[in-house]
Design a protein around this nucleic acid. Structure first.
Lengths: 217, 217, 217, 217
DNA sequence: AATGAATGAGAGTTCATTCAT
DNA sequence: TATGAATGAACTCTCATTCAT
């Protein structure tokens, strides 16, 4: 059975060694799809970047769209895995919340691929995210974490009541996401480089303090 | 002189009547480019949507890319024009700030084209925004408005000190932008429809109250 | 009746003034067709070069091909007119023959348009020359001149017998034509600029002396 | 590495079998470009004539222009190869010179492709010949052959002094080239078919005897 | 597991030409 | 006599995909 017929899942850890070419393709695909989207990406370019023959992409993934879907799933799987490694229960509510906000910010800074793929996916109707059981079914623990942390903070009168965890997540994530996602146009329009390390660090502080202040009772 | 050689500016109000075909093309282009980006958009589709012969696009705009650039400029010109019509000086600082936040939110809700084009532009390196003198030179008055309102609020001890206007703009805009831009993937992942009127209204309230709370001293 | 329906002849001298635009088109057409041939020439380019609206070309000439045919006829008419102004009967045979050879050479040097149009016409099957009654019917007097001059020279024992006037014409014209027509590739291949004035003058002398030597008994 | 990226050289003899499609394209290209030039030639037509899928042309040659350049190089390579097989050193000077003139004539008669491509190339500015290192660097041995033969003939008092080999080459080649290149317009204008075998043979004799006579002291 | 050759569909663009005034 | 708007046909070229080994 050709690999492309097998369920499109993340390759087993055990097979990692044997799948060097496959992994190279996936890595190249993430970069390419993130930058240009499904329509704009070029199979040729992905093959060249991965250093493999173009046909190998079809051998492993069946089609450009299947490769896209797989890359999307890999990208989501990665962030879920990291989110799950957050252990905020041990921290005081304020610290926990700061860690959460910081995590959102830092992850986006380090994973421009994730932003790119999400942007294209949304611009295009999010049809692949919707179609992918793998993505839908892998729930993000973040909402739960936020809800619990909020509750603990309210109990200690650190946070005010009535804040919806999903809405809070969206607004916190949005502050970071927009910064990284639209950095280029913003920099151009404000004639102010939002890409250098100092600007990033300053904005990180702003986001944390602004959001924490917004939570006060 | 063929029209495609003329400076790519927004058509004069006076000529609007004479430019029915040109305007139809531009409108169709905004929709198409917003949904699919420069690479994904199809000239055929734009022509069909505009109800004109495909070649007329080349007659008026010279190339797909030039049409894209023009559409981008039109979209920016529109929001700048609306921003300039905001008169916050007459309001009390808190009201003015709320109006500002609300404006950001409402504009994005009503102009999905704007979001789509910006997303694609950023994903692709913002090269066209950077290349367009017309966009770079049309400064946004928002930063000025925010700075003045902040100052007035600080003087009245309503807002705290030390908040950078650009950073404040980015975080406020980000909360709204991310919501609309990523609504589809967020809805899918949270199994909660963020697109219905009620969810939008609720999130609007959240953004305003959250941001206003974040400004308190 | 639109002018394009009128017989495609050279415009009357009398109408020259009124036909400034028409003449400009024809002049531009010669340059353009000579450089790029019928297929390669661009109506747009001809209009731009002539400084007139493109549609005017259709008004005056009906189609690109008709314009081409007219330009071809004009070009042939010009050389015929010059050929007819040669009066070799008054000269001694040797002088007359030298004048003839020189005329061939000099005309081609000064009329690159003529060469270009002929090259394209031949490469393409000479269908327009064949189709044009105007060209076929305007006999070249050169063959007659050559025949008479040969005869006179033979009588004076200056030239040898048995030389066919048409063949002589072809070989004489060929020496000059090839030089100008293929000057660019020849220069490149021999790494020797055949375009400068000195090289042209030297080759002219060579052609005259070589041909005259070839005629000796 | 895609074939179109490989250096545009003549295919190895050894690979001839494996390159059937590529060779068929090249052969068709020569015919098509010779007849219509770079601008006038149609990729569709070349593909049809070669009996291959149109896109294979792009696979092998990258673009229409690259195919043109390659065809030009092949055509030049062929004539150089034949020129190099001429061994005139064994012949007496007069015979050698006659052989040379005859070779020029015969080659052009048998290779209308060569004439067509050269005509278009010159009409268009010879940019491709100039750009091709392969063509520029493959020197023609003819000038050397002519120079040596002239010298030997002069030593034997058969030829006169002071004849430049390049100029001699140009005038000899020109007599033949012009005949074949402009045969169609000449035939039409002189109402005399220069294409039939008899006319060709007669003109060949004329060229040889006329040129040889021109060389006499 | 891997590759070079080949292809069909369709993309952006060019261009001669016509329409309407 | 002159022009801007509009169009259909055709062109070069791209690209995902398949074939054959």
């Amino acid at each position: 059975m050709p690999p492309s017929r097998r369920a499109a899942t993340v390759p087993d850890e055990a097979n990692a060694e044997q799948n060097a070419a496959r992994n190279a393709i996936l890595a190249a695909a993430r970069t390419e799809f993130s930058a240009k989207g499904l329509a704009g990406a070029r199979v040729n370019e992905i093959a060249a970047r991965a250093g493999v023959n173009k046909q190998l992409i079809y051998y492993y993934f069946g089609s450009k769209e299947d490769l896209y879907r797989t890359a999307l799933e890999v990208v989501y799987t990665e962030i879920r895995s990291l989110e799950r490694s957050l252990h905020l229960g041990d921290m005081a509510p304020a610290e926990a919340m700061q860690a959460l906000i910081g995590f959102s910010f830092d992850y986006l800074e380090r994973h421009p691929d994730f932003i790119g793929m999400l942007n294209h996916e949304n611009a295009q109707g999010a049809s692949h995210v919707r179609a992918s059981g793998a993505i839908r079914d892998t729930n993000s623990p973040l909402i739960e974490l936020i809800a619990k942390t909020l509750k603990r903070g309210i109990a200690q009168k650190l946070f005010r009541r009535g804040i919806d965890p999903v809405e809070l997540y969206v607004s916190i994530a949005g502050m970071s996401y927009f910064f990284f996602s639209n950095r280029l146009t913003l920099s151009s329009i404000f004639s102010r480089d939002l890409g250098d390390a100092q600007a990033v660090a300053a904005y990180r502080e702003h986001v944390v303090s602004f959001a924490m202040a917004g939570l006060r009772p």
